[in-house]
C-alpha cells in the first residue's frame, strides 16, 4: 500500500536543511536526531527516536487516512479574493500567489468525502503550510459546506486541523466571522445528532482552536501537538514568566481534561475506524425521537 504519494517533503524553517544533502536525511525538530528519509517515510513521518510527529500536509494526510481512491474532493477551485485590498509589507494577492507556488495548494483546506476503513464520512483537513493554515473566507466556507454536506448525506464529520495562524489577518473581520459561521454549522450538525470527530494536529491555535476544532463530540490529538488559544510567545510576553515544560502540548491538554485522547499516528486509522463505528448512527432511534 502506498502511504504517501509525494516522496519528497521539506521541513519549513529547519536550520538543518543547509547542512545536509537535500532529500536524503532530515534532522528531527524535537530531539535533533538525524533520520534517513526513507526510514522516516516508513515510520509515517514520526521520529523513530523520540516519537516526534512531523507535520504532514493535507493531501498526504488524506491519502494516508482514507481508503485508496475513495476520496472525492469538494470545491477544489474555490480561491481567495482580497476583500480589504490589504496593504501590508506585501499585498495579500502577492502573499497568496507565493503560498500557492510554495505548497501547490490553492487554499489552506481540503474538503470532501471518502471512506475510512469502509466508513463513509466527510472530511475537512487544514494544511499548516499554507499561510500557517489560517482561516479566511475560503477555509470557513469550505468547512461550512462540508458540514452541510454531512447533514444532507447523514454522514459523520471528521475535521483534521493543522493551523498555527488562527483567523487570517489579511481578510480582517471576514476571517473572524468564519469562526461564528463554522460554529453555527457545528450547532446544526449537533442538532441532527451527527457525529463530529475533531483531530488536532501540530499546531492548532487561535481562531481555529477557538472555533469548530474545539467542538468535536470526540476530540483527539496527535502526540506532542501544540494546541491552544494564544501563542506561547504572546503568553510569555504578557506574563513575563517562563512557561512550564510541555505547555500547550497534547499531553498537557489531556492532563487538564481538555481532550479525550492522544493517538499515535501509526494507530490512527484503526482507532478512528473503531470510534466511528460506535457513533456512526444513533443506536436507539426510538428513544431519541421520543419527546422531540
Amino acid at each position: 500500500m502506498v502511504w504517501f504519494r509525494k516522496p519528497k517533503y521539506t521541513v519549513a524553517g529547519s536550520p538543518s536543511r543547509k547542512e545536509m544533502p537535500s532529500g536524503l536525511w532530515t534532522r528531527c525538530r524535537d530531539c535533533g536526531e538525524i533520520i534517513y528519509n526513507k526510514e522516516l517515510e516508513e515510520n509515517l513521518k514520526v521520529c523513530p527516536k523520540c516519537d516526534y510527529h512531523f507535520r504532514i500536509g493535507a493531501r498526504e494526510r488524506i491519502s494516508f487516512l482514507l481508503d485508496e481512491g475513495s476520496f472525492q474532493e469538494y470545491d477544489r477551485n474555490m480561491s481567495s479574493v482580497d476583500p480589504l485590498k490589504f496593504q501590508g509589507v506585501i499585498s495579500y494577492e502577492e502573499k497568496l500567489r507565493e503560498e500557492q507556488k510554495k505548497t501547490g495548494l490553492i487554499e489552506a483546506v481540503i474538503t470532501g468525502e471518502g471512506y475510512l476503513q469502509g466508513h463513509h464520512l466527510i472530511v475537512a483537513v487544514t494544511d499548516a503550510n499554507f499561510i500557517m493554515g489560517s482561516m479566511g473566507s475560503v477555509v470557513g466556507e469550505k468547512i461550512t459546506r462540508a458540514i452541510e454536506q454531512a447533514i444532507e448525506k447523514r454522514l459523520p464529520f471528521l475535521s483534521i486541523s493543522g493551523s498555527g495562524g488562527g483567523a487570517r489577518m489579511y481578510e480582517g473581520m471576514f476571517s473572524l466571522m468564519q469562526m461564528a459561521k463554522t460554529c453555527a454549522a457545528i450547532a446544526k450538525l449537533a442538532e441532527e445528532r451527527l457525529f463530529f470527530i475533531s483531530l488536532l494536529t501540530d499546531p492548532t491555535m487561535g481562531g481555529v482552536a477557538a472555533s469548530y476544532a474545539s467542538l468535536g463530540d470526540i476530540i483527539i490529538a496527535e502526540p506532542k501537538a501544540l494546541i491552544g488559544f494564544a501563542g506561547p510567545r504572546v503568553i510569555k510576553e504578557t506574563i513575563r514568566e517562563s512557561l512550564p515544560n510541555g505547555f500547550q502540548r497534547a499531553e498537557f491538554l489531556l492532563k487538564h481534561g481538555l481532550i479525550d485522547m492522544i493517538i499515535p499516528r501509526k494507530d490512527l486509522k484503526e482507532r478512528l475506524a473503531t470510534i466511528i463505528s460506535f457513533l456512526e448512527k444513533p443506536s436507539l432511534e426510538t428513544c431519541l425521537s421520543e419527546g422531540d
Binding site: 477557538a210 469548530y212 474545539s214 491552544g228 488559544f229 494564544a230 503568553i235 506574563i239 514568566e241 505547555f247
Partner: peptide
C-alpha cells in the same frame, strides 16, 4: 493569554459560546 486560561480551555470556552 495566560497559563491558567490555557489550562482551563480558553479556546474551547470561546468556541462553545460561538
Amino acid at each position: 493569554p495566560g497559563i491558567g486560561a490555557e489550562e482551563r480551555g480558553q479556546a474551547g470556552a470561546i468556541a462553545e459560546n460561538l
